[in-house]
């Protein structure tokens, strides 16, 4: 089975990736080559096999709930693309007349 251009567009939208239209065909070809190789997994009999998501036999790890110092506000905000007071400045989520910050 191979990915169509429309499917590639849909996956790009899911991944929040804006790809130039000119790149889509090449991306589709490369993904299809990789998926073609990956499809050989279908030939392995995995009936009754438990999935292995993680190599360690640990499930949940607990510790005492003891407060420790967090990053100071200025340190946490030092890489913010836009800082507004003590907050991260982001484009408006809802329709608004307020200017969008960038």
């Amino acid at each position: 089975m191979s990915l169509t251009l429309d499917q590639v567009k849909k996956v790009a939208a899911l991944a929040r990736l804006e790809l130039p239209d000119a790149d889509l065909a090449k991306m589709a070809d490369q993904l299809n080559a990789i998926l073609g190789y990956v499809d050989q997994l279908a030939s392995v009999n995995t009936d009754g096999v438990e999935p292995l998501a993680h190599p360690l036999p640990v499930q949940n790890v607990f510790r005492e709930d003891v407060p420790v110092p967090s990053l100071p506000v200025d340190a946490a905000l030092q890489n913010a693309p836009v800082r507004l007071a003590d907050f991260f400045g982001v484009p408006a989520v809802f329709d608004t007349d307020e200017p969008v910050s960038h």
Binding site: A42, V44, P51, L52
Partner: peptide, 15 residues
């Protein structure tokens, strides 16, 4: 199921 979960099962077989 076809990709991710299948891969995790084969991962178990490799282990």
């Amino acid at each position: 199921d076809q990709y991710y979960h299948k891969a995790l099962k084969v991962r178990r077989l490799i282990k």
